[in-house]
Design a binder for these strands. Structure first.
Lengths: 193, 193
DNA sequence: GACAATCTACCAACTAGTAGGTATATTGTG
DNA sequence: CACAATATACCTACTAGTTGGTAGATTGTC
């Protein structure tokens, strides 16, 4: 049953986002899924295996969603708005944060393989953002100072921090960041886009 | 010996910033400090006590540093630059992140008391930033769209995320964010301040 | 003597991971 | 088709080690 593996990853993923990698145990997964702890080990021999699979699966699904956005909207500004909507859904869940942020905070605790997985995801997301920004700048629909690279890193960092702040301090921390990022890129209020 | 309590907090604080609250143990502190684990319990009966003291001490020292900045520089832009220098020192350490970020990621794992402590610190730092920004806007030395509140939340989130990204991905992630935050607030290159 | 700081020696609970076994499919081979 | 071999998915029961925390004795200092 391939579903079981996915089910384990679903639950482990939720625990990663609500707690942290080192704060959830095989027993937690076992309890929630209703099969024995040893059976979880059957599918993922070590916790590192589980973590690696978790990080890899997240990267694929996340980059896939970004790709969908790129194909659905041709206007870079709309793409950026769709990105904000996408990450905004994490805030709506009420008690989750970005898996990348969760793993980065445990950078010195996780294995090299997991670090690499997080690294690749991080680079890819930033690349996507930089692409959107550069295209938007070229078309004149997104305005910002400095380089698209710097702006991409800023947005990525701000969103990651905002998700963490939002869970601890309330969703307004996210909406404020989203609003301010928009305000800083639409030509300083010279119009509605 | 009051020094011992401080020494424990020093080491626990470093472990909080390099690993995470649930990823370090009394044994870790004991090993590094050279006294038995039971002796650590003598000073901080439970890990929650230790965590609370840690969060409280960090708040006091951090807010003190911000206060020093306010008094040392009268120009809000200089105050903001000093803030960037202050958090930049965390990046220089090579493997630390902001304690607030570390604790926020474990929000669902730590006690209510610790959550409250983090909350107060978070609010105070944002308040300080908003004050600097509002004053800078008034004097015309800091330029940004939207409200000072939103800009303060953006900066706080961006810096927090940047510190995490910088440890995992390298210091350039921080310098890029700092550069871009500056670029977005100095009147769009209309001058050097 | 009082008291703080420290120690050794413990405990129950939890951790990731293993050993050994069972029941049920799937697959290759005569 | 029949039947052995193999693989999958799961189980109970266990290991060795770590966790936060405690009890009680020892030491040093005012």
């Amino acid at each position: 049953m391939q579903d079981r593996k996915e089910q384990i990853l679903d639950i482990a993923g939720e625990l990663l986002q609500t707690r942290s990698f080192s704060s959830f145990s095989y027993q937690d997964v076992s309890d929630r899924i209703g099969i024995s702890k040893a059976s979880i080990h059957h599918h993922f021999p070590s916790k590192e295996d589980l973590g690696k699979a978790l990080a890899a699966r997240y990267r694929l699904s996340y980059l896939n969603k970004l790709e969908e956005i790129t194909q659905k909207y041709e206007n870079p500004w709309d793409q950026f708005e769709a990105y904000l909507t996408l990450v905004g859904e994490v805030v709506k869940s009420g008690n989750k944060i970005c898996p990348v942020g969760s793993l980065q905070v445990e950078h010195n605790v996780i294995s090299k393989d997991m670090q690499d997985e997080v690294h690749v995801t991080c680079r890819a997301v930033q690349s996507w953002l930089v692409g959107v920004l550069a295209e938007g700048q070229k078309k004149g629909v997104i305005v910002f100072p400095g380089t698209a690279e710097d702006q991409g890193v800023l947005i990525h960092s701000a969103i990651q921090g905002a998700l963490q702040n939002a869970r601890a301090e309330g969703p307004k921390q996210f909406t404020a960041v989203a609003r301010q990022l928009r305000a800083g890129m639409n030509g300083r209020g010279k119009g509605k886009r």
